[in-house]
Write a protein that binds this DNA or RNA. Structure first.
Lengths: 200, 200, 200, 200
DNA sequence: AATGAATGAGCATTCATTCAT
DNA sequence: AATGAATGAATGCTCATTCAT
């Protein structure tokens, strides 16, 4: 029999990932200390190296874990109804996932902006297969069909703009003293995405 | 008389700032090495400390230098004409400034996403006084007056969305294998900002 | 289980303190190199930082270690007998402690002459509570009572002069090419303290 | 004609030595910065190197200057009279010289306690030739002749004790929160030197 | 598997000294 | 003689990673 059961090991792994998410969120990738993560997880100094190869591997694990959660969350979105409502549901779902790990997401964004980590390159959601993006594109296609969405741009282009606005709002929300609150982002996103600056 | 003239010193300072911009861009703030910057500028290891107090001061100097350039660039923008054209001119001017120091801008964005540096906090353009933002708001106000821009949102809100889209597109452009090229950003920005996803 | 046992760790700590005492003694506080101490203790460059927070903490540890030894040594001194003999016993005990760490004591004296280190300020024996000084004062008081010691000065003043002569002799002994040997200090000290320059 | 007159040069040298004495006094030998001395003297950064070879040479110059002053001061002492009075006059003269540069003297003592500087070794007054010490020995010899001073010790030994007490008192005076004031040192010195702890 | 002591590469910064003007 | 920019050796300390137990 192994010294610890598989369940205990799984539990340790879970705690390490959670602790890592918090540490990375609080101090950034470079600033986070491997030892601190291990200790925050209730284990000894370098026990984390029994679970992960390196600091970068820990970061990757947090990202993976995050991806898994996101996918799980997505199930709920309505597959019918007006475009605006379906987009709103998508945006809300996205926010729900992000809100859970907002600080870490911020760091992930941050790391994406330089290439210190090969990880980030790999792990940025490949939109072609990203479930969220697939759903988004199907909603947009339906909207075009119904004449509610402009069709001088491809669905991919429109989806990209949706993501652009979404990321931009998140960034704006993260700026010092931003007036934008996380909760209002979905509505702002959908409203501006659909209307732009057009007069009503 | 000193070993080098004031002109040479100015030249060295220039080279140090340029080298610093590149180093910070390539490796991020934490990753950049002070020694490397000095050497990349063609000077000896620690000569940079004759010009700047600390690593952070170097970073600040690059940001300042950037701010100075931006302001200079802005002069050219037309103060009359259709909203779309004036917005486009603004977006182009912004892009011109960014293009010059794109990599460094990327790092500045990056550093903004954690607050390791008081600098960044201070230096994020205070939109109330930012000349670019002031210009933008005056264009938007004129557009509202002319009925070309929605007026159920304040000028400040609209300006924020413009910035949001702008930052979002930049971010999108920086993603690995992004199809968005820097040059097309101004047009995309203005088009989506004005029309949203509305059918023509 | 850790790489080395607690006993080994204690041994390492011991070696580090000894090595530090020698380094500080040889080069002064500022001149001593942390790395060299670690290496002199048979450990790797920075291993010393597993034991002490900083260079100053190492210095403090040496001082503490010294204080512990001094107190231990003091037990043996006779509590009865003629003043001269009891003073001599005290002086001998003091010398015994010093001889053990003479070079370091020298550095401690040295550091006391500027206040670069808060440590030194704190650690200079508070004479009111110093066991050596308490013993000394009780001997002097007994001497006054017996009429063997002048009583136009307080016990505190006399004790201070005793310390003054003691420190002075130590200093004299440390001068280049001094004829005063450590071993003869106790006798010189007691003789001059009691007789001054009086003819027999 | 040289660019500066000899008088100006002499004046600069004077200012450099004075500034150096203060800097060394305030920060110790290692802590003092050559640049700061030069600037404190009202000259530019490294101008001091036109006057002295190195930091150590500056220190030596301060010591020399000090020695010169001391000798000058000594002239005043009475060559006749009771031993106690003549010793007191010597002690007072010594104090007068020290008081003038007390902080620097402290540093000189300090540097004497390790051997970072060959200077100190060389420059510690060679007592055989030191004018102060010569005078002291002649007073003591006279005292022995008159039966006022013990003669079971040589004049050299007695002079050494006098110096020992003197240095010890100085040191005591420099201790944190010492009750001993500079002005009372001469009297304490002579009294204890002559009487020791003997009852009156 | 867990532990934590040991390791050493790495890095920002200081400062005495040199030297071209 | 005066200047001050340039230099580079030197050093305290951090932290990811290794490894013996």
């Amino acid at each position: 029999m192994p010294r610890v059961t598989a369940a205990v090991k799984e539990e340790h792994r879970r705690r390490l990932i959670d602790a890592a998410a918090e540490e990375f969120a609080a101090r950034g990738y470079a600033g986070a200390k491997v030892d601190d993560i291990s200790i925050a997880a209730g284990l000894a100094r370098s026990t984390i190296y029994n679970y992960f190869e390196s600091k970068e591997a820990v970061f990757r694990a947090v990202l993976d874990d995050f991806a898994v959660r996101s996918t799980a969350e997505l199930a709920e979105i309505p597959k019918e109804g007006p475009v605006r409502e379906r987009l709103l549901a998508l945006a809300e779902a996205d926010r729900a996932v992000l809100a859970d790990r907002e600080a870490f997401t911020r760091v992930a964004f941050r790391e994406l902006l330089t290439q210190p980590l090969e990880v980030t390159r790999e792990l940025w959601p490949n939109r072609a297969v990203d479930p969220f993006d697939k759903r988004l594109r199907s909603v947009l296609a339906a909207g075009q069909q119904a004449g509610e969405i402009r069709d001088d741009r491809t669905v991919e282009e429109l989806a990209r703009i949706f993501a652009t606005l979404s990321n931009g709002l998140l960034f704006e929300h993260w700026l010092p003293d931003s007036p934008i609150r996380m909760e209002e982002i979905p509505e702002l996103l959908v409203d501006y995405f659909l209307e732009g600056a057009q007069p009503a």
